[in-house]
Design a protein around this nucleic acid. Structure first.
Length: 648
RNA sequence: GCCACCGUAGCUCAGCUGGCAGAGCAGCGGUUUUGUAAACCGCGGGUCGGGGGUUCAAAUCCCUUCGGUGGCUCCA
């Protein structure tokens, strides 16, 4: 048939083609430049191959390699190329799954011998050869029986399993490049020659379909980009991530340590880390008092009876440390702060007039995390939650949620996190509470966000079992998301502990309870700060704020008086009056990332001034680094004070 | 927990196919008194993660154990 079809382009224009025209021909007719850049096309929003034939009217747009969907096509094709290289280099290797992921792609293989890093290099070389061969990548559909037969003959059991689970109705598509055929929905690049900029990164174990019950496969991770510069930028970013790693900086800057003798996931804060933590806590407490919170302190171990009552024992026993016998009663390390706060609330009657009742604590808890998931300060077994519980009347809920949201953005913003993402998580399958209550609470959370004009994403079914929640994630300079704030509505505890307040009519009624943490865990938040600032902390947080450095012994006396003066003014000062040259002292202070260096030589002593040098704040703030020039002590103090106040 | 990789001086790391444990930095002692990212000389420091085995001989090969790291959700 030679019917004509109407193709609508993104700009709204409509063009006519013969039915059966290929996507590539359409793209070419739009422009040769586009034809070169296109990796696939969207037909009515669905990504398809350039070779696909168009047979009916459709909305049409080309996918270029620089778009997220285009990049996905490139990476998916790169994963196939890798699988082809692996099966050619290592015949007998069975292939499982190989999708594009956030920053690249992976492919899972089943093979007895492990892949070494030399193997990765060889595979990458083979991929380059295969790409240079510019083999066409062709789509084909097969009947179910034929497909099963084909992969069964090859011994590709994983593919057989996948095919048998595909719905009967759907056509089963395959992609072939040379001798390599893979089950795949597509789309793919038209030929392997389009893959130029890829890199294999690591190999790791991964269970078939993510389940511990299944066989462990070998997963090779890689990444691919449209342009060389993009690949290089990505690899540079990976280097930057390594440089900022809080475990590395924590050691280099003498902030904390974790000891095998003590056990994994248990953190020792060194004096310099502890100074920072103290600043964070002091600031946190002051801001809480300002906002009507009362502060509490609760014990680190408790009879397990309390956790049975709260429900934690039943729901989280595999996260709790096993019981210790105390006077014949089983006690547990505290996994949550909630029960303690509830007990404090329950010690007396509460009037509707004193609501909301807000109680907070830097509460240290202990949770058993499986050894394999421990990671620096980000995943630990003992940590401190900046916890608080708000008991309020139903009519106060929205305002309270809003208050917490504002507080969280203020607090996170104070630590340099201005980019936030907000998630509203709704009822999960396994949960407690009446539908009506869930609806009411979810609506209140939603209303708080919407009345405030907050853009948020819905996390359907992502709530806690005891209530819906709002989560805030911060974005760091490398674009990574970190969960910090959580605001959770709790249906569980008020019931379980039977807590009440007395309303206007004298009746005892159930309060609403909002559970919230703003920074999350102090350990985790601290790690985040280290990575965010790359160890170059702002003045108000820095363990040492200034270093006083002498040029020669002759200035020691004078420098000492300055040192004392700074200390008296409350600054955290380090003295270096040793015998090294000034260059070495400056280097030491720079390496330690001390924000200000105060240099005292003969000239400074004579005219009662100081020479000031500012440490760079990492790549995003190099400008104020270096020699700042001479000034009086008063001028410097003024400058320091201003900088501390603005927390920048 | 599971799979892979890694454990050598306080730190970062070298030590190839078995043949006397090394470097730089840090530390300590001395010399130097210095002008914006490393002065010079010297000294001390290691059961090569632990245990077992193979061998005339093991940091090196094998087994085992402990610890660390990466990963184990993202629809073929």
């Amino acid at each position: 048939m030679s019917d004509r079809i109407k193709i609508t382009l993104p700009d709204g224009s409509v063009r006519e083609y013969d039915s059966g025209v290929t996507a590539l021909e359409v793209v070419k007719s739009i422009g040769p430049g586009l034809a070169k850049a296109a990796v696939a096309v969207l037909v009515d929003g669905r990504p398809v191959d350039l070779a696909a034939r168009l047979e009916r009217d459709a909305k049409f747009s080309a996918l270029k390699g620089d778009s997220p969907q285009g990049l996905e096509v490139i990476r998916h094709s790169a994963s196939h190329l890798m699988a082809q290289a692996v099966t050619e280099l290592h015949p007998g290797t069975r292939v499982a799954i190989g999708p594009a992921i956030e920053d690249g792609f992976y492919y899972d293989f089943d093979r007895e011998a492990p892949f070494s890093s030399e193997d990765l290099e060889k595979i990458e070389k083979k991929m380059a050869e295969l790409a240079a061969g510019d083999v066409p990548i062709e789509r084909r559909e097969m009947g179910r029986a034929e497909a099963l037969e084909h992969f069964r003959k090859l011994g590709e059991g994983y593919k057989v399993e996948l095919i048998s689970e595909l719905p009967e109705s759907e056509p089963i598509s395959f992609y072939r490049q040379g001798d390599f055929i893979d089950l795949c929905r597509g789309p793919h690049l038209p030929s392997t020659g389009r893959l130029k900029h890829f890199k294999l990164l690591s190999v790791a174990g991964a269970y078939w379909r993510g389940s511990e019950k299944n066989k462990m496969l070998q997963r090779i991770y890689g990444t691919a980009f449209d342009k060389k510069e993009q690949l290089e930028a990505h690899l540079a970013k990976l280097e930057e991530v390594k440089k900022r790693d809080h475990r590395r900086l924590g050691k280099e800057l003498d902030l904390f340590s974790i000891h095998e003798e003590v056990g994994g996931g248990l953190v020792h804060w060194h004096p310099k880390g502890a100074v920072m933590r103290d600043i964070i806590e002091t600031f946190w407490k002051a801001e809480h008092r300002k906002r009507g919170y009362q502060l509490a302190i609760t014990p680190h171990i408790a009879s397990e009876e309390i956790y049975r009552r709260s429900g934690h024992l039943q729901n989280y026993s595999d996260l709790m440390y096993s019981a210790m016998d105390i006077d014949g009663r089983p006690f547990r390390a505290k996994p949550m702060n909630c029960p303690g706060h509830i007990l404090i609330y329950k010690t007396r009657m509460h009037s509707y007039r004193e609501m909301p009742y807000r109680i907070g604590e830097m509460g240290t808890v202990y949770r058993y995390e499986r050894s394999g998931v421990l990671h620096g300060l980000l995943r630990v077994r003992g940590f401190t939650i900046d916890d608080a519980h708000i008991f309020c009347r139903p009519d106060q809920l929205e305002a309270e949620v809003l208050g917490v949201y504002d507080f969280a953005t203020f607090l996170l913003g104070s630590f340099g996190f201005k980019d936030l993402k907000v998630y509203l998580a709704t009822r999960p399958e396994k949960s407690v509470g009446a539908d009506a209550d869930w609806d009411k609470a979810t609506a209140a959370l939603r209303a708080a966000l919407e009345h405030h004009g907050v853009a948020y994403q819905l996390d359907e079914g992502g709530g806690a079992f005891y209530g819906p929640k709002i989560d805030l994630k911060v974005l760091d300079p490398l674009g990574r998301e970190w969960q910090c704030t959580t605001i959770q509505f709790d249906f569980n505890l008020p019931e379980r502990f039977d807590i009440t307040y007395v309303d206007e009519s004298g009746k005892q009624v159930r309060p609403f309870v909002v559970h919230r943490a703003l920074l999350g865990s102090l350990e985790r938040f601290f790690a985040l700060l280290v990575e965010h600032y790359a160890g170059s902390f702002p003045l108000w947080l820095s363990p040492f704020q200034l270093a006083v450095l002498t040029i020669t012994d002759a200035q020691t006396e004078y420098a000492k008086t300055l040192f004392d003066k700074f200390e008296k003014l409350g600054f955290r000062v380090k003295a270096n009056f040793g015998a090294e040259k000034i260059g070495a002292k400056i280097r030491d202070a720079e390496m330690e990332k001390i924000p200000y260096m105060v240099i005292i030589g003969k000239k400074e002593e004579e005219d009662k001034q100081v020479s000031v040098r500012r440490h760079g704040q990492g790549p995003f703030d190099k400008l104020r680094a270096g020699d700042v020039g001479k000034m009086t002590v008063e001028e410097l103090v003024d400058r320091l004070n201003k900088e501390v106040v603005q927390r920048g």
